[in-house]
């Protein structure tokens, strides 16, 4: 599991998963089948009893597919594009050109690392301003050459550091929100793991917004919320419940369009299957959006986001 501790509620599942692959490796088919049954039962149990906080832990699982896994699994002719043309290249966001079902697309997405070195290199998927500015630059490229944008969202949040503040983290996020709203090309967003507040939304304004079954999307992390409102880190689970951050909650609030089912027990249990599910959803969405004139997209996008939020009026 490359450096990250297995959450205790997933321990049995992880152990069974290893036993199954061990039995398969030894060619003991009967034993593998027996263990596989146990594994499925445990995965069903985990899924049936999963709490909002446990979903956060699944969403952060180190073997969950990341942006580049979706690119590798679904696309060909990938050309990664680097840099914001102003300051630097931010490895916490990847951008590039690719072919999806034979059509060229632009991909932007947060990128986390899997081993310790890679995690540090990717800054744990927390972008700096140049990451958001790179994403905007490449989305503008998409508009210019009439390519749809596919955005993969998976970040704990925008990086809260001195250098990020100096270079205008807030401005970079704000500008993306405004420019994405007006972009005259289709934008499809998939929240694949952690939707960490403004750092997630900064590449999350789209014509279709999908969310994986165990992904979470929130205004603040449960840890941050517990620290501020309860002044107590041990209230994290309660905060996770109070924030209503699961895919089901967001669908109910009208913030996302569709929940994409994950393999039993979570996307990390069968990454290729999770990637294929996302591929199917992207295919349908892009086909629908291609039928709309690009110049009409901002108006529809405005109507979509204009409705969000509940308030009283007398």
């Amino acid at each position: 599991m490359a450096g990250a501790a297995v959450p205790s509620f997933l321990a049995t599942l992880e152990a069974l998963r290893q036993q199954v692959s061990e039995a398969e490796r030894q060619g003991d088919r009967a034993e593998a089948a027996r263990l596989k049954e146990q594994l499925d039962a445990e995965a069903r149990r985990v899924t049936a009893t999963v709490t909002p906080w446990q979903r956060c832990l699944i969403a952060r699982h180190a073997e969950r597919p990341y942006t580049l896994d979706y690119v590798r699994g679904l696309m060909t002719d990938w050309v990664e594009l680097h840099g914001d043309r102003g300051f630097a290249d931010d490895p916490a966001i990847v951008t590039g050109l690719a072919s999806f079902d034979g059509d060229s697309v632009v991909v932007v997405g947060h990128q986390k690392g899997r081993d310790t070195r890679d995690r540090l290199y990717r800054n744990f998927g927390q972008p700096r301003p140049e990451g958001y500015r790179k994403a905007l630059r490449v989305m503008r490229l998409a508009e210019k050459f009439r390519l749809p944008v596919i955005s993969f969202v998976d970040t704990p949040g925008a990086y809260p550091g001195i250098d990020a503040e100096e270079r205008g983290q807030a401005e970079a996020i704000a500008r993306n929100l405004r420019e994405m709203a007006a972009l005259e090309t289709p934008i499809v967003v998939v929240v694949t793991g952690e939707g960490g507040s403004g750092g997630a939304l900064a590449i999350g304004v789209g014509d279709r917004v999908f969310m994986l079954e165990h992904a979470v999307y929130s205004v603040i992390s449960p840890e941050g919320c517990a620290a501020i409102l309860w002044k107590d880190q041990s209230e994290t689970q309660r905060a996770a419940e109070a924030l209503r951050l699961t895919a089901n909650d967001l669908l109910g609030f009208g913030v996302i369009d569709e929940i994409l089912p994950e393999p039993l027990g979570g996307a990390h249990m069968d990454p290729p299957l999770a990637v294929r599910t996302v591929g199917t959803a992207l295919r349908t969405a892009l086909a629908e959006l291609r039928r709309i004139r690009p110049a009409d997209l901002p108006r529809r996008r405005y109507a979509k986001f204009r409705k969000m939020g509940a308030f009283l009026e007398r």
């Binding site: 704000a174 405004r178 709203a181 403004g198 205004v219 924030l243 209503r244 986001f305 969000m308």
Partner: peptide
Amino acid sequence: ARMQEGILSLMQMAKISA
């Protein structure tokens, strides 16, 4: 953003910016 309104307060950022 107002935490007590969760994701809907986050979406106000997108709504106003649009």
